[in-house]
Each structure stands twice: as structure tokens, then as C-alpha cells.
């Protein structure tokens, strides 16, 4: 990333000194206005990941099945932020341990689309209304996706 950025910056500087200065000023301005919120979110994510480690999540998701299991999974998925390369293997283990496909589907979907922790950042950009609408509709979509995943991947034709 740094290489690409600096290469393009050099090219830009070569083409126009003035425009490059403006670009850097704009970059600094937008960075400065959001930096503290990023910092806060990263601290919250740190706490989340420390408290909700793989074992805790497995315990919570694995324990209940059916609708209650899906609701629990969706809440955990909405609150936590786990990068995909950790989430997918965890989800795989949960499936192997007997968790339902719908539950895992709702967990993975909410994990990616619903971000309770990042709401402070989202509101800064899009305002309250869009942020709430987006997160609520993504939450609902997660259940729709999970329904189809349960049918198609889980072969449960309920």
C-alpha cells in the first residue's frame, strides 16, 4: 500500500506540485477528522475479541439450536467484529460440532454486514437515519440468507 501511494504521489508531484499539495492537505483533513473515532473503535474491538474468544463464541452458539440459537448467533455476530480468516474456521468447527447451518449462516452474515461497534464511525459519514436503516435491514437480510442456507446447504426443508 505504501509503495503504491508513494509512487502515485511522486507521479502526481511531477505532474503538478500545486494539485499534489492540495491532495495531501485533503488527505490530512479527512484523516484528522476521523482518526479519534477509528482509535476508539479499535480499542472496543480489542476488548470484544479478548472477551469473546473462539471458546466463548463456540459455547454460546453451540449451546442452543433452532430459533433461539439463531437469535443468539445473530446478536453475537452483530456485536463482534472478527476478521474472516478467523471467523470461517471457527464457523467450520461449530458446524462439525453439530451447530445448525441456519445458525452459522446468520452468524457469518451478521458478522460481516452488521457493525454495532462501528456505528460511531458510520454515523459520522452517513448520519443516524442511514446507519440505523442499513444495520437493521442487514440484520434482517442475515436471517433471509440463513433461511436459504439452511435449506440448500443444510438440506433442511422445513
Amino acid at each position: 500500500m505504501y509503495y503504491v501511494a508513494f509512487a502515485l504521489l511522486a507521479l502526481s508531484f511531477y505532474k503538478s506540485r500545486k494539485k499534489t499539495t492540495i491532495a495531501l492537505m485533503k488527505a490530512w483533513k479527512s484523516f484528522n477528522s476521523i482518526f479519534t473515532k477509528f482509535l476508539g473503535v479499535i480499542c472496543l474491538v480489542g476488548i470484544m475479541l479478548a472477551v469473546f474468544d473462539e471458546n466463548v463464541i463456540s459455547g454460546l452458539i453451540g449451546a442452543e439450536s433452532g430459533v433461539i440459537g439463531m437469535i443468539i448467533s445473530s446478536i453475537i455476530g452483530s456485536i463482534t467484529i472478527i476478521p474472516g480468516f478467523i471467523a470461517f474456521p471457527t464457523a467450520k468447527e461449530l458446524l462439525e460440532d453439530g451447530a445448525g447451518y441456519s445458525q452459522i449462516g446468520v452468524f457469518v452474515s451478521t458478522l460481516m454486514m452488521v457493525g454495532v461497534m462501528t456505528i460511531p464511525v458510520e454515523v459520522t459519514y452517513f448520519g443516524k437515519k442511514v446507519t440505523i436503516l442499513r444495520n437493521v435491514s442487514a440484520f434482517i437480510l442475515a436471517f433471509v440468507a440463513a433461511y436459504f442456507i439452511g435449506k440448500i446447504a443444510g438440506h433442511v426443508w422445513f
Binding site: 505504501y2 504521489l9 499534489t20 485533503k26 488527505a27 479527512s30 484523516f31
Partner: peptide, 18 residues
Amino acid sequence: MAMIIPPIFILLGLLDVW
């Protein structure tokens, strides 16, 4: 974040201008 965010903002600044 230190590896990703600053270059992203530089690229965005350039995009904005060019």
C-alpha cells in the same frame, strides 16, 4: 491500521484532486 490507513487517505486525496 498504521500499515493501511495512511496510504488509503493519501490515495483518496489524490483521487479527489485528479
